[in-house]
Simulated scan of single mutants.
Amino acid sequence: MTIKSLAVLFVAATMPHLVAAEQLPTQPQHANAQDLIEVFEKSGGKHPGIRKGHAKGVCAVGEFVGSEQAALYTNSLLFSGATIPAVMRFSMAGQNPIVPDSSRSPRGLGVKFSLPNGGVHHIAMLSTPMFGANSPESFLGLMRAGAPDEQGKRDPARVAAYRAAYPDTQPQADWLMNNPIPRSYKDVHYYGVHTFFFKNEAGVEVPARYSLEARDGYHGLDETDLDALGNDFLAARLQDELATAPAYFDYYITLAEEGDNLLDPSQTWPEERERVLLGTLKVTTSGGEACTPINFDPNIISAGVRSSDDAVLKIRSPAYAISFARRLTGK
């Protein structure tokens, strides 16, 4: 019997009134993009014409300028120092387009940069420094454990049992419980969670993870104010904030060192890793439909940056493509 199996049995033994042994969730042996889209729809319901993940969000526009030291790490046109137009989407995690803005869940940010040569470069991030699982299979199993049954009821005990059996799914949940709910989309640090390789003009390539960090810092909500805020305050708050002044996010890469896991997005690297500022994103206005026709696939990137073999990162392209196609066709 595996350690994971023992962990699940322990949960069942200590909470027999919550999880029956025959109902213990298991991790699938294989996951594909279609599986993920189907479980998204089962979990959040079918919403024609809506993104299957990060269904609720708001568009914004701005610009990006690379830093002077960026050329030491990459020759991507994104970091050339030119002013690069940016279209972005701030969002709530999940498949529900009416999820409350006060939910204790990740926020998302996808950005499309339009490069001087006519090309594009995308980034996609979460407000947690890690992803919710270490593989597509583990993530699919977690989503299935949390999905409602035929009567529309969810079973939190199944999720707890699954997390006990597959501890790679626990760090993100712990982070969300131990950090305040963000007060605004602009008061959040966003993380790429996956490893990418950055190559400079001399051909030197380094593995790193990127992040966009709010220049004004991370600010959480006073939870006593949640009832007064209601379910839909983030989009209006961002619009009001940008009407007063632009929001700035600094683009950092964190450099890997020997021994760091390059393929597991559920693991964070030690805090003492070297960080380098590669540029700044300026967000000027929000609202409108500029991001609606964009598929924020993080694997759409420019020369000078390449994706790692992280299986979660790789499956995002076909999953995003299915979601994009269904959204455009109203499915």
Rank of each mutant, 00 (worst) to 15 (best):
Ala247Pro: 00
Glu205Ser: 15
Lys199Ser: 14
Ala245Ile: 00
Asp260Gly: 02
Glu223Gly: 04
Met177Phe: 02
Phe131Glu: 07
Asp250Ala: 04
Ala202Met: 11
Tyr252Leu: 01
Ala164Ser: 14
Arg163Glu: 04
Asp222Cys: 08
Glu201Phe: 00
Tyr210Asp: 11
Arg154Val: 14
Phe197Ser: 11
Asp174Gly: 02
Gln151Glu: 14
Arg144Glu: 15
Tyr162Asp: 08
Val193Gly: 02
Glu137Ser: 09
Gly146Val: 12
Thr244Met: 08
Tyr248His: 15
Glu213Met: 11
Asp260Val: 01
Asp187Lys: 09
Met143Glu: 14
Phe198Thr: 09
Val193Ala: 04
Leu234Trp: 07
Asp149Gln: 06
Ala247Leu: 03
Pro148Gly: 11
Leu221Lys: 08
Glu257Phe: 02
Val193Trp: 03
Gly146Glu: 08
Ala256Ile: 04
Glu150His: 02
Thr169Asn: 06
Lys186Val: 03
Ala235Arg: 10
Ala236Phe: 03
Ser135Gln: 09
Asn134Lys: 15
Ala157Phe: 15
Lys186Arg: 13
Lys186Ser: 13
Ala202Asn: 13
Asn200Ser: 07
Leu176Arg: 04
Tyr191Lys: 03
Pro167Asn: 14
Glu258Trp: 07
Ala214Asn: 04
Asn231Met: 01
Pro246Lys: 15
Lys153Ala: 12
Arg158Thr: 06
Pro171Val: 09
Arg183Ser: 14
Pro171Ile: 10
Tyr166Pro: 00
Asn134Cys: 11
Leu126His: 13
Gly152Met: 09
Phe233Lys: 05
Met143His: 05
Gly259Glu: 12
Ser127Cys: 07
Pro182Gly: 10
Ala256Met: 13
Ala157His: 15
Ser138Asp: 11
Ser211Gly: 12
Ala247Gln: 06
Gly203Pro: 04
Gly152Glu: 13
Ala133Ile: 08
Asn134Met: 11
Ala243Val: 00
Met143Trp: 00
Thr244Cys: 04
Gly132Trp: 03
Gly141Glu: 06
Glu150Asp: 10
Phe249Gly: 03
Gln239Ala: 09
Gly141Met: 05
Ala161Ser: 15
Asn200Gln: 11
Glu241Met: 01
Arg154Lys: 15
Val193Arg: 07
Leu229Tyr: 06
Phe139Trp: 12
Lys153Ser: 10
Arg183Ala: 15
Leu221Pro: 05
Asp232Met: 00
Ala164Pro: 00
Thr195Tyr: 11
Gln151Pro: 06
Ala165Leu: 06
Asn178His: 15
Arg215Lys: 13
Val159Leu: 11
Gly220Asn: 09
Ala165Pro: 03
Val204Gly: 10
Gln170Val: 14
Glu201Asn: 13
Asp227Lys: 15
Gly146Lys: 05
Leu234Phe: 14
Arg144Phe: 00
Asp232Ser: 07
Ser135Asp: 08
Gln172Ala: 09
Ala245Thr: 02
Gly217Ala: 11
Ala235Asn: 14
Leu142Pro: 13
Lys153Gly: 02
Phe198Ile: 06
Gly192Asp: 10
Leu226Arg: 10
Asn134Ile: 05
Pro129Lys: 02
Phe197Asp: 10
Arg154Asp: 03
Asn178Gly: 04
Ile253Val: 13
Phe249Ala: 03
Arg154Gln: 14
Asn200Tyr: 01
Leu221Gln: 06
Asn134Gly: 13
Glu241Lys: 02
His219Leu: 10
Asp216Phe: 03
Pro207Met: 06
Gln172Ile: 03
Met143Ala: 14
Phe139Leu: 14
Ser135Arg: 10
